[in-house]
Simulated scan of single mutants.
Amino acid sequence: MGKKTIHVSDFSGTVLQPDDEVVRVVVLEHPDLVAGPVQLDATATEVESIDDAALDVAVVEIHDRHGGGEPRRVVLTASEFDALATDVPMAQLLKTAERVRPPKARKGAEKIDYGTIEHAGKPHRGRVTEEEARLVREQLDEVNKRLADAGIRQVDPADPEHAARYGFPAED
């Protein structure tokens, strides 16, 4: 028995033929988008009107007390934004405005907390905390399954090094 995969357009539900030009559309922002960007498949014909429908917009962040410490991101038409500049034309204002520097990247990698079930038992050079050792001892099967799924060596309580590292009782 064989299997056949049929690809359909996410927009229209029509079956995509092998000779159709499939276009991937990544939705970065949308009022109904709740869990981050998504991708949709469509034909080139279905998305050719997107460029014609595109708006000239300004995307701004408002840093004020209403955001609870976080900036509010607002999208408005470029002409609406341009109208806010009453002293100098917006094009000139944007050319002479103070540049915003992107936040500096943190040096080094994000510190991994081996005292959580997501990371407990992973090989590392640091000291094993009591929390990590307890998690490994109490949830050995879950830890080893996660390690095996990730292709990492598993914790063996019979291994003297592992027994000492994670506080397993000594084998007689």
Rank of each mutant, 00 (worst) to 15 (best):
V155Y: 04
V60H: 00
D159E: 07
V8I: 13
K3R: 07
G121N: 12
V25N: 09
P103V: 15
A54W: 01
D172T: 15
D20P: 04
Y114V: 14
G13E: 02
L40T: 07
D159L: 11
A58E: 01
V88T: 12
R101A: 14
A85K: 00
E46Q: 10
V57N: 00
V8F: 09
D32I: 00
R146I: 06
D64C: 11
T129M: 03
A170K: 14
A78E: 13
R101D: 13
T14L: 08
E98G: 13
E131A: 15
L76T: 08
Q39S: 15
V23I: 15
E171G: 05
A148L: 02
I117S: 12
D141F: 06
D149K: 03
H162S: 13
A170L: 06
Y114I: 12
H30D: 09
L135N: 02
V143D: 01
E80H: 15
K122C: 09
Q17T: 15
D19K: 03
Y166R: 07
E142M: 07
H162Q: 07
M90L: 14
A105T: 03
I62R: 14
F81P: 03
P103G: 04
D51V: 13
I6P: 00
E130S: 11
M1A: 15
D87Y: 06
P102D: 07
G68I: 04
E98M: 11
T43L: 14
V26G: 08
L55M: 10
A85R: 00
A163Y: 05
V26Q: 14
A163F: 08
D82I: 06
G36R: 01
T43Y: 14
A35T: 15
L16S: 06
V15Y: 09
V136T: 04
M90W: 10
T86W: 01
E21S: 15
D82Y: 09
G115W: 01
L84Q: 02
H63W: 14
T77M: 11
G115M: 01
A170I: 14
E131P: 04
K122L: 13
Q154S: 13
V136I: 04
T5P: 04
Q17M: 13
L93F: 01
T43A: 10
G67F: 02
A54E: 04
G115D: 11
I117T: 13
D159F: 07
R137Q: 13
V57Y: 00
V22H: 06
V143P: 11
V74C: 00
H124T: 09
L93R: 00
A150P: 05
I6F: 08
V27S: 05
E161W: 08
D19W: 03
A54P: 00
D156N: 13
V143Y: 12
A105R: 08
A163D: 12
L16Y: 11
